[in-house]
Amino acid sequence: MQASLKAQRSESDTSWKVRLQEWWFRNRALIGYAFIFPWFAGFIIFDAAPFVYNLYLSFTDYQIGTVGTPPWIGFENYTEIFTEDKLFGKSMYNTLYYLGFSVPLRLIFAFLIALILNLRVRGMELYRTLFYVPSVVPLVAATVIFAGFLNTRYGFLNQFLVLIGATPVRWLSSPDAIKPSLILLSLWGFGGQMIIFLAGLQSIPEDLYEAAAIDGGTGWHRLIYITVPLMTPTIFFNLLLGLIGGFQVFEQVFILIGTHGGALQAGLVYMLHVYNKAFRDFEFGYAAALSVILFLIIFVLTLMVVYTSNRWVFYGDAQDDEA
């Protein structure tokens, strides 16, 4: 009796599972959408909608205290930015300067460290961890530590320079030194890019290096003719992230030199200008227009990099893959 009941239950369980599988298969598209819905909802609510609203605000004279619909002023904000705003050009120059040095330097630095950490040496896991640790330190904490390093009188860097007989540098108070200081600070968080490079390096087939060695290739040849070409997709990826992030540099500048931008506003980066317009001058519509311009610049630059990537990024031989 009991065996019969058990068999019936087993049959029932099986049919239930089969039905569930069939339902799952029939509705797989719906279920897929359900899985991506949380991200999609987040994207709409926290990214797309604010973006569209920001775009709308950029055509208005939205200021603090504006009640109801802000007055529509068309392209007035944009006209003012390009014809009257002296700090637009200055902040854009400062940002491009920062970008022009920090992005390549950080890429090179992260790549070189990744190369070293890809060697087969005892205790390498420990070294990798040590090099990655700075990246998990919050940016605010890292910046505060750097402010101490860069202190003219008591900072580690100047103490070191004096020790070796060099002239101390006014890292944060000289208009000539502010941007190099910010670039120096940008190298601190190289760990994220380094990890991506390391993953890329470990995916390069070993037999390519063996073949090069058999052909008499030196370490330099292996680096130039195998490693770098095969790493170009990773370099491309890190370059894009670096460019997008570099244009939006803000927190470290804000903490190190304040909203004014330092001596002769040499550190007034673009996002600081946006911030000042929004939260000091309370001209939110104008700040929105500045943000839209930044978006367009990043968008166009990204498209250009993607477009030119066909010429220098090596994804492998597609025909060989198919064969």
Partner: peptide
Amino acid sequence: GVENVTDFFQD
């Protein structure tokens, strides 16, 4: 110079 003044009171 003003850099000296700024540095003197820094932090």
